[in-house]
Design a protein around this nucleic acid. Sequence first.
RNA 1: GGCGCAUUCGUCUAGCGGUUAGGACACCUCCCUCUCAAGGAGGAGAUCACCGGUUCGAAUCCGGUAUGCGCUACCA
Length: 369
Amino acid sequence: MRAEQVRRKQPPGYDRRCRELSEEEHAQKEAEGLTPVVRFKIPLVGQTRFSDVVWGEVKFENNTLDDLVLLKSDGYPTYNLANIVDDHKMEISHVIRGEEFISTTPHHVLLYKALGYEPPQFAHLPRLMGTDRSKLSKRHGAVSIEEFHKQGYLPEAMLNFLALLGWSLDDKTELMTRQELIASFSLERVKKTPASFNREKLDWMNGVYIRSLDPEDFLQRSLPFLERDLPPEVVRPLPVDYIRQIMPLVHERAKTLADVPELTRFFFTVQLDYDTELLIAKGMTVESTHHALEVARQQLAELPAFDAESLEEMLRPLAVELELKTGQLFGALRTAITGQTAAPPLFQTMAVLGRETCLERIDRALDRL
RNA sequence: GGCGCAUUCGUCUAGCGGUUAGGACACCUCCCUCUCAAGGAGGAGAUCACCGGUUCGAAUCCGGUAUGCGCUACCA
């Protein structure tokens, strides 16, 4: 019947053919072996209205409502019936659910009344959509909260971000703690328009929350990600005391906890893999780079204390001595020592890595040139 | 097809009759600076989907159009 209606471009739905069966007709159908369902006889005229915290006063014409099934042919109640009875028995005061239920709400209201129940307060929330305005689904952008956790997002950042989907406090407040959220959230300020996920903004917000973590907390939360994502050749268990020295160097550089392994990888791997070209800073040649690294290597080997401060006190004058810009000398050293052109501050990085490792890496860079 | 809802900078949004249409992300410039970040200071970016109407005055109220979305099960 349904297919037929669609084909004829008729509104699909129950045609009420059995709404007014007589006793005889009823008996006859049963004699034919038909197992009936029980439907809700919706009033044919008038309108049903209810007030929704988000939607305001909502009004539906009764003649657009169809006679929904209350009891299935197997005798079990449908969701629509069970839902109402259950909510009533549980003394539910507020029904807060997705906007897609707004259309069936008048049926529910009518049912509450038919059963002599007092309808609860309704609040229909806007749907969440993907960045491209498409519906969020498992195969399209949407991920479970566990998935976000795996991707390195902090629970407190997620809570803050999610709260802002479909709701806002005012025209400027964005960052709110859990307590502030609890204190200021209100259904009245929830909007009807579908909210959509802005991943870039989530990344930014997560970064804000990561930076607000105290060092030890950041370390503890990062550990599982390091265990999971650092290359397999890095020996486990990971040296926590060593990591404790590394973490402050990448703390403000991580947008997610999942970034941490990538940002710190060179602290753990023995073999650095990089393009030799990267050693040669702008305005320099193979020769000048080789010379600079050689002199630096020699002085580093003799430096009394290998800490960040001493390193800086030694390397800055060296740049002048070599007639190089600091960026040129430091750039060459950075690539030699980290294998990257973008990395945490050089002196602190060197201090954490230690003299032996730094010298080895410079030697290896010299071999390449 | 029917019913309902929505449409404001690139993006997420504030706004509920009178605002220079506010904020955030992203972007650009400058400062800081050994790179990258972070931080600071600026900048650009919106004829408020379109067409009418009401009003002294409309992003805000009312029609219509367009587009998008939801619902339209013997599923929950």
